[in-house]
Amino acid sequence: MPHWLNEQHTAIRDAVRRFAENEIAPVSEELWEAEAFPYDIWKRAGELGFAGLPYPESWGGGGGEWLSYVIVLEELARVDCAIANSLMANSTVASLLSNYGTGEQKDLYLRPILDGRKVGAIGLSEPNAGSDAANIATRATLEGDRWIIDGSKTFISNSGTEVTGPVVIAAVTGTRPDGRKEISSFIVPNGTPGFSYGRKLRKIGWRASSTYELFFERCAIPAANLLGERGAGLRQTLAQISTGRILIGALALGILQGSLDRSIAYMKERRAFGKPIAEFQALQFKIADMAAHAHAARLMLYDAAAQKDAGVRFDQQASMAKLFATERAMEAAHQALQIHGGYGVMSEYPVSRAFGDAKVLEIVEGTSEIQRMIISRNLLA
């Protein structure tokens, strides 16, 4: 482990690992098959302080550091990446509310998503606006003391559940003098008239993470539900992106470590040609690569998180860590499946489920191609 980890980090890791192995692992396959949001697990994670760990104690958070939160997500994703993603997506909403919300907004919307009563969803992506966030088309028009929202969102994690709390969305509120769109952030409570859900989206991975389309048709919210300054929405959202990349990298690290752990256990148990398959050098090399990549990814992610905690710029480190961790997780999930042979393609085996989960990580919070653009642009600046 890196030298800057302390006893508190070890205690957090041990607590989350026990929780994941004792309470999540036994139901992971069932949640995968049913594509069901884990209500009891989410509530329990909130009660244990996992969801609110890096947020202010004054609003129900743990007052902890982001490095500790990375460890939480890593350990959860080691067992079930979908559940870890629910915390990750919730944290984006929590960060927006914590950084830009009024005291009343924090009390109404932040506190419940930190203690497990509710789960937050962020509504940015649209059918024609994914990585190109500035191209969103959803509009919000101020009419008297209400904002009227029209448009749609897609690929929205944590949406459509019985405990979905605030959905924080980005919408166009006008045109800037230079012709660019003015984009603002809004808090839309679940159940607001004019706000409806479309299809439940079925995914290659993250199947226990609830994902829906969102539709807004003359959806009226109070003017007070504007989050932060008018026109600051895109800047607010993009300010969370680098943190999100560290957290997605943490999910990838969990998959990478889980793939390694399962492969080692299986290689010791499985026999072929009269001996344990652990004696075959071709398979030994696969786990050697996994171990080296897990160690490197952990160092990169922990370093990026430590830089965030120290208040210094970390966007380059976040992009590099996200790129490396997610691509190595995909590779490790592939090799773990290969090691397991025919059993690896059966969904009852965690290595199969991890393979689908790993692919998603190369797409969200900026694709691998986007990360390479960011890194090279910074190098050439």
Score class of each variant (00 low, 15 high):
282 A>I: 13
104 E>Y: 09
317 Q>H: 12
372 R>F: 06
174 G>T: 02
100 Y>K: 03
214 L>S: 01
239 A>I: 01
146 R>L: 12
161 T>Y: 01
156 I>K: 06
196 S>G: 13
253 L>T: 07
211 T>Q: 10
210 S>W: 03
377 R>Y: 14
237 T>K: 09
190 N>C: 15
276 P>G: 09
289 D>W: 04
200 K>C: 08
112 P>K: 12
81 C>D: 03
374 I>H: 03
80 D>N: 15
103 G>W: 00
28 S>F: 00
252 A>G: 13
83 I>S: 02
297 A>G: 00
5 L>N: 00
55 Y>C: 05
134 A>I: 04
250 A>R: 02
23 E>T: 06
217 E>S: 00
379 L>H: 13
173 T>G: 03
157 S>I: 02
52 G>V: 01
359 K>G: 12
284 Q>V: 12
163 V>H: 10
142 L>D: 05
353 R>V: 08
176 R>L: 15
22 N>R: 10
18 R>A: 15
28 S>V: 05
305 A>C: 01
161 T>W: 06
12 I>H: 14
20 A>I: 05
207 R>I: 07
191 G>Y: 07
199 R>D: 12
285 F>I: 15
273 F>Y: 15
265 A>V: 03
134 A>L: 01
293 H>N: 11
303 D>F: 14
197 Y>R: 08
66 W>G: 10
69 Y>G: 05
275 K>W: 09
143 E>M: 06
45 A>M: 15
271 R>P: 04
120 G>Q: 04
17 R>Y: 04
268 K>A: 13
121 A>Y: 10
157 S>A: 09
48 L>C: 02
368 S>L: 11
234 L>F: 01
296 A>L: 10
109 Y>N: 12
69 Y>K: 08
231 G>K: 04
110 L>C: 07
45 A>K: 05
51 A>I: 06
363 I>G: 11
105 Q>L: 06
231 G>R: 04
311 G>E: 00
266 Y>F: 09
354 A>F: 05
129 A>R: 07
262 R>S: 10
246 I>M: 09
305 A>Q: 03
134 A>N: 01
300 M>Q: 07
9 H>S: 13
159 S>I: 01
243 T>G: 06
187 I>C: 00
330 M>S: 15
330 M>C: 08
247 L>M: 14
211 T>K: 03
174 G>C: 06
359 K>S: 12
119 V>I: 11
175 T>E: 02
375 I>A: 06
224 A>Y: 10
290 M>F: 05
208 A>E: 14
370 I>V: 11
304 A>V: 09
84 A>H: 02
239 A>R: 02
99 N>M: 10
355 F>T: 05
138 T>L: 15
225 N>A: 02
175 T>S: 01
32 W>I: 11
236 Q>V: 00
28 S>D: 10
